[in-house]
Protein backbone atom coordinates (compact mmCIF):
# COMPACT_ATOMS: atom_id res chain seq x y z
CA UNK A 1 0.00 0.00 0.00
CA UNK A 2 2.94 2.33 0.53
CA UNK A 3 3.03 2.97 -3.20
CA UNK A 4 -0.34 4.64 -2.82
CA UNK A 5 0.66 6.75 0.14
CA UNK A 6 0.93 10.45 -0.45
CA UNK A 7 3.98 12.44 0.57
CA UNK A 8 2.42 15.81 1.11
CA UNK A 9 3.99 18.21 3.55
CA UNK A 10 2.55 18.31 7.03
CA UNK A 11 1.02 21.77 6.78
CA UNK A 12 -0.70 23.77 4.08
CA UNK A 13 0.73 27.24 4.59
CA UNK A 14 1.38 28.23 1.03
CA UNK A 15 0.82 26.80 -2.43
CA UNK A 16 4.60 26.47 -2.42
CA UNK A 17 4.09 23.55 -0.01
CA UNK A 18 2.53 21.57 -2.88
CA UNK A 19 4.02 19.78 -5.83
CA UNK A 20 2.06 19.56 -9.04
CA UNK A 21 1.15 15.98 -8.09
CA UNK A 22 -0.04 17.09 -4.65
CA UNK A 23 -2.21 19.77 -6.21
CA UNK A 24 -3.76 17.32 -8.66
CA UNK A 25 -4.29 14.81 -5.86
CA UNK A 26 -6.19 17.43 -3.87
CA UNK A 27 -8.34 18.34 -6.85
CA UNK A 28 -9.03 14.71 -7.73
CA UNK A 29 -9.83 13.84 -4.13
CA UNK A 30 -12.16 16.83 -3.98
CA UNK A 31 -13.81 15.59 -7.13
CA UNK A 32 -14.48 12.24 -5.50
CA UNK A 33 -15.67 13.87 -2.30
CA UNK A 34 -18.01 16.15 -4.21
CA UNK A 35 -20.01 13.02 -5.01
CA UNK A 36 -20.31 12.33 -1.29
CA UNK A 37 -21.74 15.79 -0.82
CA UNK A 38 -24.44 14.85 -3.31
CA UNK A 39 -25.32 11.70 -1.42
CA UNK A 40 -28.36 11.68 0.89
CA UNK A 41 -26.22 11.17 3.99
CA UNK A 42 -23.46 13.72 3.92
CA UNK A 43 -21.30 12.36 6.63
CA UNK A 44 -18.22 10.19 6.53
CA UNK A 45 -16.55 8.62 9.56
CA UNK A 46 -13.07 9.37 8.27
CA UNK A 47 -11.93 11.93 10.85
CA UNK A 48 -13.94 10.64 13.79
CA UNK A 49 -12.12 11.50 17.01
CA UNK A 50 -10.04 14.23 15.44
CA UNK A 51 -10.34 17.79 16.66
CA UNK A 52 -10.15 20.67 14.22
CA UNK A 53 -9.97 24.24 15.48
CA UNK A 54 -11.13 27.18 13.41
CA UNK A 55 -8.94 29.98 14.75
CA UNK A 56 -10.18 33.15 13.13
CA UNK A 57 -8.63 36.52 13.91
CA UNK A 58 -10.57 38.14 11.08
CA UNK A 59 -14.24 38.02 10.28
CA UNK A 60 -14.83 35.63 7.46
CA UNK A 61 -18.07 33.80 7.87
CA UNK A 62 -17.78 32.31 4.41
CA UNK A 63 -14.42 30.67 4.87
CA UNK A 64 -15.10 29.61 8.43
CA UNK A 65 -18.41 27.95 7.61
CA UNK A 66 -16.87 26.25 4.61
CA UNK A 67 -14.09 24.71 6.72
CA UNK A 68 -16.56 23.84 9.43
CA UNK A 69 -18.87 22.05 7.01
CA UNK A 70 -15.93 20.21 5.48
CA UNK A 71 -14.63 19.05 8.86
CA UNK A 72 -18.07 18.00 10.07
CA UNK A 73 -18.82 16.00 6.96
CA UNK A 74 -15.71 14.02 7.77
CA UNK A 75 -16.96 13.60 11.38
CA UNK A 76 -14.22 15.69 12.98
CA UNK A 77 -15.01 17.60 16.15
CA UNK A 78 -14.93 21.31 15.36
CA UNK A 79 -14.10 24.07 17.80
CA UNK A 80 -14.68 27.60 16.60
CA UNK A 81 -12.38 30.09 18.20
CA UNK A 82 -13.16 33.58 17.07
CA UNK A 83 -10.29 35.64 18.33
CA UNK A 84 -11.05 38.78 16.41
CA UNK A 85 -9.67 41.80 18.16
CA UNK A 86 -9.11 39.89 21.36
CA UNK A 87 -5.58 38.62 21.06
CA UNK A 88 -3.48 41.72 21.30
CA UNK A 89 -5.86 43.77 23.39
CA UNK A 90 -6.23 41.04 26.01
CA UNK A 91 -2.54 40.34 25.96
CA UNK A 92 -2.69 36.74 24.81
CA UNK A 93 -0.20 36.25 22.05
CA UNK A 94 -0.72 34.00 19.07
CA UNK A 95 1.90 31.73 20.56
CA UNK A 96 0.03 31.41 23.85
CA UNK A 97 -3.17 30.68 21.97
CA UNK A 98 -1.37 28.04 19.91
CA UNK A 99 -0.07 26.32 23.02
CA UNK A 100 -3.50 26.46 24.64
CA UNK A 101 -5.09 24.83 21.62
CA UNK A 102 -2.43 22.20 21.55
CA UNK A 103 -3.04 21.27 25.15
CA UNK A 104 -6.73 21.00 24.30
CA UNK A 105 -5.75 18.29 21.87
CA UNK A 106 -6.28 20.07 18.57
CA UNK A 107 -5.13 17.87 15.70
CA UNK A 108 -5.40 20.71 13.21
CA UNK A 109 -5.67 24.46 13.42
CA UNK A 110 -7.22 26.39 10.57
CA UNK A 111 -5.94 29.91 10.89
CA UNK A 112 -7.26 33.14 9.44
CA UNK A 113 -5.14 36.08 10.49
CA UNK A 114 -4.50 39.65 9.42
CA UNK A 115 -0.71 39.32 9.55
CA UNK A 116 1.19 37.85 6.62
CA UNK A 117 3.12 34.81 7.77
CA UNK A 118 0.93 34.16 10.84
CA UNK A 119 0.30 30.57 9.72
CA UNK A 120 4.05 30.00 9.30
CA UNK A 121 4.61 31.26 12.81
CA UNK A 122 1.85 29.08 14.22
CA UNK A 123 3.37 26.03 12.56
CA UNK A 124 6.64 26.76 14.36
CA UNK A 125 4.89 26.64 17.73
CA UNK A 126 2.43 23.75 17.51
CA UNK A 127 2.62 20.01 16.88
CA UNK A 128 -0.67 19.89 15.03
CA UNK A 129 -1.36 20.41 11.38
CA UNK A 130 -1.73 24.07 10.38
CA UNK A 131 -3.91 25.07 7.45
CA UNK A 132 -3.65 28.64 6.26
CA UNK A 133 -7.12 30.08 5.71
CA UNK A 134 -5.75 33.46 4.69
CA UNK A 135 -2.82 35.35 6.23
CA UNK A 136 -2.68 39.09 5.70
CA UNK A 137 -1.71 39.92 2.15
CA UNK A 138 0.27 36.72 1.74
CA UNK A 139 -1.73 33.64 0.72
CA UNK A 140 -5.05 31.85 0.85
CA UNK A 141 -4.22 28.43 -0.57
CA UNK A 142 -7.60 26.71 -0.24
CA UNK A 143 -9.27 29.57 -2.10
CA UNK A 144 -6.85 29.05 -4.97
CA UNK A 145 -7.49 25.31 -4.90
CA UNK A 146 -11.22 25.80 -5.14
CA UNK A 147 -10.77 28.33 -7.94
CA UNK A 148 -8.62 25.85 -9.84
CA UNK A 149 -11.17 23.12 -9.12
CA UNK A 150 -13.98 25.26 -10.53
CA UNK A 151 -11.97 26.28 -13.57
CA UNK A 152 -11.06 22.69 -14.30
CA UNK A 153 -14.60 21.50 -13.91
CA UNK A 154 -15.85 24.05 -16.41
CA UNK A 155 -13.04 24.20 -18.91
CA UNK A 156 -11.40 20.78 -18.85
CA UNK A 157 -14.40 18.49 -18.97
CA UNK A 158 -14.92 16.27 -21.95
CA UNK A 159 -17.46 13.69 -23.04
CA UNK A 160 -15.86 10.86 -21.09
CA UNK A 161 -14.86 13.06 -18.16
CA UNK A 162 -17.63 15.27 -16.84
CA UNK A 163 -15.51 17.03 -14.22
CA UNK A 164 -12.04 17.14 -15.74
CA UNK A 165 -10.70 14.73 -13.14
CA UNK A 166 -7.01 13.98 -13.57
CA UNK A 167 -6.47 16.99 -15.82
CA UNK A 168 -4.26 19.99 -15.12
CA UNK A 169 -4.92 23.47 -16.52
CA UNK A 170 -2.41 23.55 -19.34
CA UNK A 171 -3.44 25.50 -22.37
CA UNK A 172 -5.78 27.78 -20.46
CA UNK A 173 -5.33 31.56 -20.37
CA UNK A 174 -6.50 33.09 -17.14
CA UNK A 175 -6.62 36.78 -16.22
CA UNK A 176 -6.53 37.93 -12.60
CA UNK A 177 -7.90 41.44 -12.33
CA UNK A 178 -7.72 44.06 -9.60
CA UNK A 179 -5.82 44.72 -6.42
CA UNK A 180 -3.01 42.21 -6.82
CA UNK A 181 -0.79 44.06 -4.35
CA UNK A 182 -2.99 43.41 -1.33
CA UNK A 183 -4.52 40.12 -2.46
CA UNK A 184 -3.68 36.82 -0.82
CA UNK A 185 -6.08 35.17 -3.24
CA UNK A 186 -4.04 36.47 -6.16
CA UNK A 187 -0.72 35.31 -4.70
CA UNK A 188 -1.97 31.78 -4.11
CA UNK A 189 -3.66 31.64 -7.49
CA UNK A 190 -0.59 32.79 -9.39
CA UNK A 191 1.43 30.01 -7.78
CA UNK A 192 -1.20 27.31 -8.23
CA UNK A 193 -2.43 28.14 -11.73
CA UNK A 194 1.18 28.31 -12.87
CA UNK A 195 1.93 24.99 -11.19
CA UNK A 196 -0.98 23.48 -13.10
CA UNK A 197 0.22 24.83 -16.42
CA UNK A 198 -2.11 27.79 -17.07
CA UNK A 199 -0.95 31.03 -18.66
CA UNK A 200 -1.64 33.91 -16.32
CA UNK A 201 -2.15 37.59 -17.05
CA UNK A 202 -2.39 40.11 -14.25
CA UNK A 203 -4.56 43.11 -15.04
CA UNK A 204 -4.29 46.04 -12.66
CA UNK A 205 -3.19 49.64 -12.38
CA UNK A 206 0.57 49.76 -11.74
CA UNK A 207 -0.08 51.07 -8.22
CA UNK A 208 -1.82 47.83 -7.29
CA UNK A 209 0.92 45.53 -8.52
CA UNK A 210 3.76 44.74 -6.11
CA UNK A 211 7.31 45.85 -6.83
CA UNK A 212 9.01 42.58 -7.70
CA UNK A 213 6.05 41.24 -9.68
CA UNK A 214 8.36 41.01 -12.69
CA UNK A 215 9.78 37.87 -11.07
CA UNK A 216 6.38 36.17 -11.13
CA UNK A 217 5.50 33.68 -13.87
CA UNK A 218 2.87 36.01 -15.33
CA UNK A 219 2.26 38.60 -18.00
CA UNK A 220 1.26 42.08 -16.94
CA UNK A 221 -1.37 44.00 -18.82
CA UNK A 222 -2.76 47.42 -17.99
CA UNK A 223 -5.50 47.19 -20.60
CA UNK A 224 -8.40 44.98 -19.55
CA UNK A 225 -9.98 45.06 -23.02
CA UNK A 226 -6.84 43.64 -24.52
CA UNK A 227 -6.42 41.02 -21.81
CA UNK A 228 -10.00 39.75 -22.02
CA UNK A 229 -9.83 39.21 -25.79
CA UNK A 230 -8.21 35.82 -25.67
CA UNK A 231 -8.84 34.50 -22.20
CA UNK A 232 -10.63 31.42 -20.92
CA UNK A 233 -11.31 32.58 -17.39
CA UNK A 234 -11.34 35.93 -15.63
CA UNK A 235 -10.81 36.09 -11.91
CA UNK A 236 -12.07 39.36 -10.45
CA UNK A 237 -10.59 40.38 -7.10
CA UNK A 238 -12.51 42.22 -4.45
CA UNK A 239 -11.46 45.86 -4.15
CA UNK A 240 -11.31 47.45 -0.75
CA UNK A 241 -12.57 50.97 -1.01
CA UNK A 242 -10.27 52.32 1.68
CA UNK A 243 -7.41 51.84 -0.76
CA UNK A 244 -8.51 55.04 -2.39
CA UNK A 245 -7.30 57.02 0.59
CA UNK A 246 -3.72 55.93 0.00
CA UNK A 247 -3.65 57.28 -3.53
CA UNK A 248 -3.67 53.90 -5.24
CA UNK A 249 -6.25 55.18 -7.71
CA UNK A 250 -8.14 58.44 -8.13
CA UNK A 251 -11.78 57.40 -7.76
CA UNK A 252 -14.11 54.42 -7.72
CA UNK A 253 -15.59 55.64 -10.98
CA UNK A 254 -12.25 55.71 -12.75
CA UNK A 255 -11.30 52.34 -11.33
CA UNK A 256 -14.47 50.66 -12.46
CA UNK A 257 -14.22 52.27 -15.90
CA UNK A 258 -10.69 50.94 -16.42
CA UNK A 259 -10.67 47.71 -14.42
CA UNK A 260 -14.28 46.80 -13.74
CA UNK A 261 -16.12 44.07 -15.58
CA UNK A 262 -19.27 45.03 -17.46
CA UNK A 263 -21.23 43.91 -20.48
CA UNK A 264 -19.31 46.13 -22.87
CA UNK A 265 -16.00 44.79 -21.73
CA UNK A 266 -17.26 41.26 -22.26
CA UNK A 267 -17.93 42.16 -25.92
CA UNK A 268 -14.17 42.25 -26.40
CA UNK A 269 -13.87 38.61 -25.46
CA UNK A 270 -13.58 36.21 -28.37
CA UNK A 271 -14.65 33.21 -26.30
CA UNK A 272 -17.11 33.62 -23.47
CA UNK A 273 -14.82 33.50 -20.44
CA UNK A 274 -15.67 31.83 -17.17
CA UNK A 275 -15.92 34.56 -14.55
CA UNK A 276 -14.87 33.94 -10.98
CA UNK A 277 -14.94 36.13 -7.92
CA UNK A 278 -14.02 35.14 -4.37
CA UNK A 279 -17.13 37.01 -3.19
CA UNK A 280 -18.77 39.01 -1.80
CA UNK A 281 -19.03 41.29 -4.83
CA UNK A 282 -18.87 45.07 -4.66
CA UNK A 283 -21.64 45.55 -7.22
CA UNK A 284 -20.91 48.43 -9.53
CA UNK A 285 -17.26 48.59 -8.58
CA UNK A 286 -15.27 45.62 -9.79
CA UNK A 287 -18.30 44.05 -11.44
CA UNK A 288 -21.22 45.99 -12.88
CA UNK A 289 -24.62 45.25 -11.40
CA UNK A 290 -25.98 43.56 -14.52
CA UNK A 291 -22.90 41.35 -14.98
CA UNK A 292 -22.91 40.44 -11.33
CA UNK A 293 -26.09 38.39 -11.69
CA UNK A 294 -24.46 36.29 -14.35
CA UNK A 295 -21.51 35.73 -12.10
CA UNK A 296 -23.53 34.86 -9.02
CA UNK A 297 -24.24 31.35 -10.23
CA UNK A 298 -20.54 30.53 -10.40
CA UNK A 299 -20.07 32.12 -6.98
CA UNK A 300 -22.68 29.80 -5.53
CA UNK A 301 -21.05 26.86 -7.20
CA UNK A 302 -17.76 28.04 -5.71
CA UNK A 303 -19.28 27.70 -2.25
CA UNK A 304 -20.06 24.03 -2.83
CA UNK A 305 -16.68 23.44 -4.43
CA UNK A 306 -15.04 25.12 -1.47
CA UNK A 307 -16.44 22.50 0.88
CA UNK A 308 -15.24 19.64 -1.31
CA UNK A 309 -11.76 21.08 -1.71
CA UNK A 310 -11.44 21.70 2.02
CA UNK A 311 -12.66 18.17 2.76
CA UNK A 312 -9.92 16.92 0.45
CA UNK A 313 -7.28 19.00 2.19
CA UNK A 314 -8.46 17.89 5.63
CA UNK A 315 -8.57 14.26 4.56
CA UNK A 316 -5.12 14.33 2.98
CA UNK A 317 -3.51 16.16 5.90
CA UNK A 318 -5.38 14.52 8.76
CA UNK A 319 -6.72 11.23 7.39
CA UNK A 320 -3.61 9.22 7.97
CA UNK A 321 -0.53 8.92 10.08
CA UNK A 322 2.22 11.44 9.65
CA UNK A 323 5.60 10.18 10.62
Amino acid sequence: MSDNATAMKKHLLSINDLTREDALLILDTADELARVSDAPIKKLPTLRGRTVVNLFYEDSTRTRISFEAAAKRLSADVINFSAKGSSVSKGESLKDTALTLQSMGADAVILRHGASGAAHRLAQWTNGVVINAGDGTHEHPTQALLDAFTIRKHLKRSSGNATGVGEDLSGLRISIVGDILHSRVARSNVLLLHLLGAKITLVAPPTLLPVGVEEWPVEICYDFNEAIEDCDAVMMLRLQLERMKSAFFPSAREYSRLFGLDRERLLHARKKPLILHPGPINRGLEISAESADAVESVILEQVANGVSVRMAVLYLLLGGAHE
Binding site: S116, G136, T137, H138, R187, G212, V213, E215, W216
Partner: peptide, 11 residues
Amino acid sequence: GKVSAKLGLAG
Protein backbone atom coordinates in the same frame (compact mmCIF):
# COMPACT_ATOMS: atom_id res chain seq x y z
CA GLY B 1 11.50 43.73 -3.86
CA LYS B 2 10.89 40.26 -5.13
CA VAL B 3 10.85 38.71 -1.66
CA SER B 4 8.31 41.16 -0.23
CA ALA B 5 6.15 40.64 -3.31
CA LYS B 6 6.10 36.93 -2.64
CA LEU B 7 5.63 37.13 1.11
CA GLY B 8 2.92 39.75 0.99
CA LEU B 9 4.72 42.04 3.40
CA ALA B 10 4.55 45.79 2.89
CA GLY B 11 7.74 47.04 1.28
